[in-house]
Computed example of a mutant assay.
Amino acid sequence: MIKPEKPASEQSRLEVLKRYEILDTLPERAYDDLLTIAAGICGTPMGSVSFVDADRQFFKSRRGLPVSETPRDVAFCAHAIMTPNQMLIVPDARDDLRFHDNPLVTGEPRILFYAGAPLISSEGEATGTLCVMDNQPRKLDAFQQEAMMVLSRQVTALLELRVSYKKLRHHLSEREWYEEQLKSYQDSLEEQNADLIEQTRLDPLTGLSNRRALNLALDAAIQLAATQGSSLAMAIIDIDHFKTINDLHGHPVGDETLVSVARVIHAQRGQHGFTARCGGEEFALLMSHTDAKNAELQCDYIREAVQNLAQGLPVTVSIGVTLFKAGDTAASLYARADEAMYAAKSGGRNRVVLS
């Protein structure tokens, strides 16, 4: 293992980090949302918004990581801040002399893939990173890399808003004006996050595409199928008895179920598949260049995989599948798949019906 060096401007960097007053603070949804989007775009089970202090890295937000900080000497992010103008991407840590015997690689959480986008302050100092990780080797495409850089800039924007908020608290004496300004900053923060989620077209809970992204993808897929004569299948997937899960076990368990099912659908989507959460407990799967037999088989794999989830409670799905026909619109294709899904429910649930 090669320990990370320290930047030439280390003292200035630490002063900027101190100005943010972010170290050892509690988790905040704004940072968690950005990390959720980053992990969703990159398809990774782990990630963090981390800040590199003098001797440690602190996780302001974390996903799939068991601790809130690690020593700086073993931190991937401490290497990432050494190149503030570019991402650090480690496809397989076992092949990298800097990390191959790192305890975070050889032990839990067994990081093999790492990608970190530095958080650059207005002074040009790298205070930490927005990073995603996996315990499997992988690569990021150009879009994923660009998205990570965009999201890292959004994290920095939150930090700067944090500083402005602190200044307001310090300088304002008139309570009414202070509360108006505070609300304005909070509204601005929430609006930025809402806009970002909408722009990336992701469902923040599951990391899948949302309904808006599905509509765009469906229009494009139908146009391609109509002009090129290629096959197109669509499936609507609904979790059986989901209301009962929420009522009996609570909404946190319901959310865990949605995330688990979403991972199964995404993992089984196939080479030309597009997955989305339509809303509630309903998901959609587009399968380009797929005939009826293979579409039905692929959906049955999903059904079986969900049924075999180690969830601690029984979870099944009903799936309706249909094939694109000449003259179909997005609405008619969706409606036919939806009808097939309801036929699957009427037929006893935990089954696939091809329309």
Rank of each mutant, 00 (worst) to 15 (best):
N294G: 00
H170T: 01
I2L: 09
C131T: 00
E198S: 14
G43T: 07
R351D: 07
E174P: 03
G47Q: 13
M1T: 13
S184K: 15
G312T: 00
V352Y: 14
D291T: 03
D187Y: 02
D219K: 12
L196F: 15
A331E: 10
E15T: 03
V49M: 04
S122C: 05
S152W: 13
N350G: 00
A80D: 15
N85P: 08
A305Q: 11
P103E: 05
W177V: 09
L232D: 10
S288Q: 15
T156H: 05
Q154P: 11
K345A: 09
V264P: 12
T25G: 10
R19E: 14
M149P: 04
E15G: 04
S230N: 13
E108G: 05
S260F: 06
L23F: 11
N308L: 09
A142N: 07
N210E: 05
P66W: 13
N193S: 02
V261A: 04
I222P: 13
T329H: 06
F324T: 01
E125M: 10
D95E: 13
P27N: 05
E69P: 11
N294L: 12
N102F: 14
H266F: 09
F99S: 00
Q192S: 06
A235K: 15
L189A: 09
E69R: 09
H251G: 05
V67P: 04
F58P: 00
V163Y: 10
M133V: 00
T322R: 01
K183N: 07
A78W: 03
S152D: 04
I222K: 13
A220F: 13
S318R: 06
A75Y: 02
Q11I: 01
F59D: 05
L14C: 06
Y178C: 03
G107C: 11
T36P: 01
E160R: 08
Q271F: 10
G43K: 02
L297P: 00
V315G: 11
T290K: 05
E180M: 03
L23K: 10
K3E: 11
V317D: 07
S48F: 05
H170I: 08
V264H: 07
P7I: 04
R19H: 13
K3R: 01
T227N: 14
F51M: 14
D33Y: 07
L34K: 07
M234W: 15
A267C: 12
D338T: 01
V90P: 12
A233S: 15
A225R: 05
